[in-house]
Design a protein around this nucleic acid. Structure first.
Lengths: 355, 355
DNA sequence: ATGAAAGCGCTAACAC
DNA sequence: GTGTTAGCGCTTTCAT
């Protein structure tokens, strides 16, 4: 019955000192302080029901022994839990790691926001094709809510999680028929602003680099199309270069475009790293950026400001993102209905688009 | 006595459906399956002590209801725990967030390594002046081990944690009298290689940009000094520009160096972002990189390859780092004595040092 | 093959 | 003000 009989047995002489010391618990403190566990519990929780002197004595003792209440036991008893799961999907096919600077920046921002509010953050990866497995930590009572970085292609699974009442916030784009809560940048606006900026600079044959299967990218693509339409330009379907968020693939696709004789004078890329691949591909043909081809990025990662050339890019408010995501999740935990938010984005103009 | 009396009371008619549904537990599955909780427990753990048919029935039922064993309760009962704390210190003074790309990259790498081995990762921030508070999660039984990203200036506190038997691995440099386990790059080698490379390129007045209070930086500085000495150059004490890992401060310090009339033809910086600040400061005086001043970075973050100019930098093996750190921690959990590791680093030569 | 019951470390209602 | 005791959701010994 005892899961670890040896632990509660009378300590074997030698074992006590070097073998893994039994973890201190409340009963030990109680014994050493000469009071009952209830008193210790009360003292440590600062209850006024305990004699002030006893209280300080117990608290001092605990501190001196580095004793801290076992949080697992406390949580079980109190039915409380202040842990949030943060899930970064990964592409199982390419076995791509969590490495996109933007995603990592969001993770950092979430860590800050959660810590500030006294929540703990359980960080995990999940196969992007099985986003619903992100609910496991919730089902197991491990966490009280889930944050997923990116929608990927499984809107349906996310809806499924929400339908199951899993408190959930997704960094991504708002979709029709969406049951879950999203927080994200204004993707349509971002795509539109970047494209319009290129059009204002006189560009007419503008490629779009990204995979519109992803809702966020789809909105950016629509913004791009709207800007073209507004300028009276009919989009050539070959202008859509449908690549994942993976650098090598993007480079190959661009090289291929050149080989096929596709002619263009600008590229709207869906991340800064993708934009830099475009720059490299353009230069590999002897053309110049921005003189011959203008390029815009997306995210405004730190590298965008320092790259060669510095990238004109759509700035996403990472720090604010963390705060808003956490806010949206906590609101749900308080019983409020999920309310999605779209944050304004801002085009930052640098050398990759202006001579 | 019941911490949440309402929960166990007979469900109020309406409450059942829309008010936050009570979380499913084993007793519910047992009732629905018409067996006892013991049987459910056995079935879900795949025990052969339970009738094969009953087992599948129970398992199916649980799956269909998205029931998962409450991990907190299970952990408490089994005295097990597969969670590791990953702690990213922050500078309380500057209230600097977790944002250094290198630290975030390590976090990503750790997430991968831990997930692969079936461990969960609790990510948190801690004031760099109170590194020992990183032990709290361990004291509370929340995690079985702690990983701290960076040594900062509190070697003593880390030793304290180790003395308290907290299973611990620190990303950083090996120090004399060190009780805890470190995994890190070869900092002396990195500083030496970078400096030697500059010397081979004919540079003679080489600044060092970084704060040698930090053990990692101290080793890099020693490598730098050794390279100078080997070349028969006496280091000018003014060549040490003692700045934290903070971009604005680095820029100010460099501008100041120029104002003071300090003359130099190369800079060894302790991060890629610091190196880019050096480039900016040099260019602001009308000088060119690398023609007038060569600059080396450290870490080889993604941005180093794409920056203007691309940075010669010391590559740190981030992916391998995650694996090794986790490995070192797990070895300790198995009772092996802490064994520190130093990983080779490699100078990557790019345009910032060669015309 | 199954169930009853004890107990993991803690809190709080209840008794004194 | 303090101690006794039941029970949070689970696993496992023991009995059947």
């Amino acid at each position: 019955m005892k899961p670890a009989a040896a632990r509660t047995a009378e300590p074997v002489a030698a074992a006590a000192q070097d073998r893994e010391r039994r973890r201190l618990q409340m009963a030990d403190i109680a014994r050493l302080a000469g009071v009952s566990v209830s008193t210790v519990s009360r003292a440590l929780s600062g209850s006024t029901l305990v004699n002030a002197e006893t209280r300080t004595r117990v608290v001092e003792l605990a501190k001196s022994l580095n004793y801290t209440i076992n949080q697992g036991a406390q949580n079980l008893r109190l039915q409380k839990n202040r842990t949030i799961a943060v899930v970064v999907p990964y592409d199982a096919a390419s076995r791509q790691h969590i490495s996109d600077p933007f995603f990592l920046a969001i993770v950092g921002s979430l860590a800050d926001a959660l810590t500030d509010l006294g929540y703990e953050m359980l960080l995990s990866r999940v196969d992007a094709e099985k986003l619903d497995s992100a609910g496991a930590a919730y089902d197991a009572g491990r966490v009280v809510g889930v944050i997923i970085i990116g929608q990927w292609r499984h809107h349906d699974q996310l809806n499924g999680l929400a339908a199951r009442q899993v408190p959930l916030v997704v960094w991504g784009a708002e979709m029709p028929q969406q049951l879950y809560c999203t927080v994200g940048g204004d993707n349509h606006g971002g795509g539109y602003q970047a494209t319009r900026h290129l059009l204002m600079g006189g560009r007419r044959r503008i490629l779009f680099l990204g995979n519109p299967d992803l809702p966020e990218v789809r909105w950016r693509y629509r913004g791009y199309l709207d800007a073209l339409k507004e300028a009276g330009i009919e989009a050539d379907p070959r202008w859509l270069l449908d690549v994942p968020f993976e650098e090598a693939a993007a480079r190959r696709r661009l090289d291929q475009a050149y080989q096929e004789g596709l002619s263009f004078d600008a590229v709207v890329a869906c991340s800064d790293l993708l934009a830099l691949q475009a720059v490299a591909a353009v230069r590999a043909t002897g053309r110049r950026v921005p003189a011959d081809v203008s390029v815009t990025g997306y995210d405004d990662a730190p590298l965008a400001a320092w790259s060669d050339p510095p990238l004109t890019t759509v700035h996403q408010p990472v720090d604010e993102a963390g705060r808003l995501i956490v806010e949206a999740l906590l609101a749900q935990l308080e019983g409020q209905p999920p309310r999605s938010r779209t944050m304004p984005v801002q085009l930052v103009v640098r050398k990759s688009t202006v001579g």
